[in-house]
Design a protein around this nucleic acid. Structure first.
Lengths: 333, 333
DNA sequence: GTGAAAGCGCTAACAC
DNA sequence: GTGTTAGCGCTTTCAC
């Protein structure tokens, strides 16, 4: 007994011996199973307290072959949108008694894949995918492991999807600038936004432009010179950017070029990261309700974890909206 | 055999049978232990490939009673300093073959403690503590579990510490403003900075002030009206803030009050978060080299994990420096 | 209500 | 070199 007290943590066996019951009884009491006399329960409880017993999670996981860990696949934690989402996901997960294991896939594809595989080897209960590049190996690994997955604010070719209505968001952004009287409005896609979401936002933008009889100018960041875009002959008076970080970079470029915002240029972002609300940034943007996205995502994932993978994948849409700040105004003249 | 192929993942036993060897041989080959004929190794490898065998980590953890998971205790992921640090830590950990499990302690103390305990129950290999409030229960739980811990940019009462020289940082910040000719320089402590680090930065500030024959004005955020501080009779012409987020809030307040920065007010932050480098923010600040902090922290932690807890705790200092941007300038007049 | 017994899939001595 | 054996600490039937 003195051994179990000082050397190693007490095991279920130590508790059973001290309480004078069997291991199964201790197990039942610990897990709150019913069907035990209250006197037995009390004895077991006392022994647990006396030995400061804590069930060995590693053993439990081993026999059950499952964990209470959620894997979170993330692009770049230094991007506030992702870190704010990660925070929300962690909060929701921990409220349900799950821990969050991080897996960054930003740096290098091969290592990301290895990291993912080892995450799956840990038998995570589910995956929250915040960034997804549509990798074939990735999807094969996850579906092969049969682990419930939910894609959040990005599209996936397997698993459930929780996102805002990106097309509507793109449309709202464009309509806002159109309503202010802008004619030359560009859409700029930032590379850190997942392709399908970016495409949907661009579609919404195009729809709004066409509806207003205007010509869409959609550009992708890659190979795009912001300076050229903002100073060329046909330079836009308004820009919709596929995320706030990109929009802020556009603000920064405009500042450097001496282009005044919003007098000479209106900018609309996407995400509503905390930063966008600072007076010095004051970015008009499309809000993605991060807390709600996380809540819905975890709820969907949880249903899969306990309910199984039978039913067809869901795509749940969470509402988004426009927040008008001081980066947008009617064009001059 | 067909069962092992379709129903459940293959086990070491399946591989052994197919290769016609014993489980231990498979185990040895998998773990790269030496002392096996190359023909045996080849047979085992083939069987592994044929069955797409992956070792069951849960079983391995169970028998070894240890994991390759690093727990990261974090304050607020929405604070860019923490998320940037978390990113750096994840990068270093994954380079060493460890995964990162997150534990937020921001919201509510009781739940945080429960979450920590369950993290310890997972037998994490070590703890990287990014935020620490000096909680007695917390330290008891961790030391009781005998898990190597490293405090990063915060002070702890157990385990190793990796930080910048906070006193020097505070001093650098104050000296910069003194050098510009400021006389009334205040220090403002943001609550999200851990107390001891905050105190050290304030000490450095005080030392610089005394050395210059100036009167220190140190305030803590709590119960402090920024507006009052910035508009009162004895208002400072320069402010040193214990972190960038607080400094940016000061900028924001100044903007709202019509106080021009840097003409009427110089502001120096601490951390050099990405945001501080934006043209619209352009905050003079003290850099904490996040990548290096993470690298050193993981290296120290790794040594403890493999080398044990015998030697006395280290406190390793990483250099910090001043970055001058446009939020600081000589006072008017 | 309670206990006995059989594993979960792996590692690690220790024989051979 | 390779196989045998004994667990790791827990859950989970299934008897009693």
């Amino acid at each position: 007994m003195s051994r179990s007290l000082r050397d190693k943590p007490a095991t279920i066996h130590d508790v059973a011996r001290l309480a004078g019951v069997s291991k199964s009884t201790v197990s039942n009491v610990v897990r709150g199973a019913e069907g035990h006399s209250s006197s037995t329960r009390a004895r077991v409880r006392d022994a647990i307290d006396a030995l400061a017993y804590r069930p060995n999670l590693l053993a439990r996981q081993m026999v059950q072959q499952r964990t209470h860990v959620i894997g979170v696949i993330i692009g770049d934690l230094a991007n506030p949108f992702y870190s704010e989402m990660a925070k929300a996901v962690e909060l929701e997960a921990s409220a349900r008694g799950y821990h969050v294991m991080l897996c960054s896939i930003h740096i290098d594809e091969r290592r990301a894949l290895a990291s993912l595989r080892s995450l799956l080897d840990y038998r995570v209960a589910g995956l929250v995918i915040l960034a997804y590049a549509g990798n074939r190996e990735f999807s094969k690994a996850v579906t092969g492991a049969r682990i419930p997955s939910v894609f959040v604010t990005c599209r996936g070719d397997f698993g459930d999807i929780v996102s805002t209505d990106d097309e509507k968001g793109g449309q709202l952004a464009a309509q806002h600038l159109i309503g202010l009287g802008h004619k030359r409005i560009a859409y700029v896609g930032d590379p850190s936004v997942e392709d399908a979401a970016d495409a949907a936002r661009a579609d919404g933008y195009r729809a709004a432009m066409r509806e207003a009889g205007l010509t869409p100018i959609a550009r992708h960041w890659k190979g795009l010179s912001l300076q050229q875009l903002l100073t060329g002959r046909e330079r836009p008076t308004g820009v919709v950017c596929s995320n706030d970080l990109g929009a802020i970079e556009i603000l920064d470029t405009a500042d450097r070029l001496g282009i005044r915002v919003p007098e000479d240029l209106s900018v609309v972002g996407y995400d509503d990261i905390t930063l966008a609300g600072l007076k010095r940034i004051s970015l008009t943007t499309i809000t993605q309700p991060k807390g709600e996205l996380a809540r819905v995502a975890l709820s969907v994932l949880y249903d899969r974890i306990v309910g199984g993978m039978q039913s067809a994948p869901n795509h749940i849409i969470v509402d988004c909206g426009l927040v008008v700040r001081r980066s947008s105004a009617p064009p001059r003249g």
